[in-house]
Computed example of a mutant assay.
Amino acid sequence: MGTTTEDNGRVFDAPSDNFVYSLLPRWLWPYAQLARWDRPIGWQLLMWPCFWSAAMAAAVTAEANAFRPGQFIAHLLLFFIGAVAMRGAGCTYNDLVDHDIDNQVARTRSRPLPSGRVTRRQAKIFILAQALTGLAVLLSFNVFTILLGFASLAFVAIYPFAKRFTDWPQLFLGLAFSWGGLVGWAAVFGSLSLPAMLVYLAAIVWTIGYDTIYAHQDKEDDALIGVRSTALLFGEKTKPWLVLFYAAMLALLVAACLVAGLGWAAFAGLLAAGVMLFYQIAVLDIDDGAQCLKLFKFNSRVGLVVFLGLVAAIFIG
């Protein structure tokens, strides 16, 4: 049980060698922890669907000899900033909603709110600051993309409560976390079409898969306090479900690339990503919390490989 870290300002399940603890003043540590800056995997996983969609849109423009490298780079930078800001705001909001639950879970009771290092009022002010940063990024795009970005807030608001009313909170996380699959395309074309929708759906099932692995870390505590998850729902049948989700992700991305008319490089990236995805399933031990966390984080590499294949498709087809 001894997981609180009020004496040293650290969080139990975050790496102690992160830049947060070497570069930021100590008074900022709790805010960095609320935003999960010491755990970059979250913003990375939020960012990849944005990057996939942006790269796919860029590859389509390249086929039409209308590729704008400056716009592509600028969009990637904006999506990076937006992912860090909005993931931080979402985590802070989630911690406010789950304040009492986090205090009952061994892995989370050392977080800033349950440990008392940040007040609820301070957390709310911090949400506002991060949300304004995200808004500044969103306002850099066309009107359609701005409206699309605001539409995502419905899923963002619902997600923290999903574990209380459904066995599928990972689905609601996917609906929110995958929105960049739509935004990246809309930022280029000012509209949506089938490839973007397929990328969005692919990112949703990917999210359900990797977050089910993540949720296996907390399944004992979740069962005790009545919190629901796909990890508890699937139990010993988790691996067959992961095969379904990861196969669906790959199939949807293959379909998106076909509809968009992309070349062989994009499919090579998907093949490599597929090997990485099914490696996770092969080695997964759902009763090993440390391994579950490691495999969850491994998905950022999967996202990178998919992205690199799409970038290659811009230049070599």
Rank of each mutant, 00 (worst) to 15 (best):
P40G: 12
L24G: 10
A54P: 00
L45Q: 03
A58C: 08
W43I: 11
Y31T: 09
G42F: 09
S53R: 03
M56I: 15
L34F: 09
C50R: 00
L24E: 06
W29K: 04
W29I: 08
R39P: 02
P25A: 08
W43C: 10
L28G: 07
P49H: 10
S53L: 06
A35C: 03
R36W: 07
A35K: 00
W37V: 08
P30D: 06
Q44M: 13
L28V: 08
P49D: 05
W29S: 05
W29Q: 02
S53V: 09
W48K: 02
L28A: 15
L23A: 08
P40W: 12
L24T: 14
L46M: 03
Q33E: 14
M56K: 00
C50T: 09
R26Y: 04
A57F: 11
L23Q: 01
F51S: 05
A57E: 07
W29H: 14
P30S: 06
P25M: 07
P30K: 05
L28M: 15
Q33Y: 03
S53N: 04
F51D: 00
P30W: 11
P25R: 07
D38I: 13
P30Y: 11
W48Y: 08
M47R: 01
L23T: 08
A58G: 15
R36N: 04
A32H: 04
W37M: 12
G42N: 01
A55D: 07
Q44W: 13
W37K: 00
A35R: 01
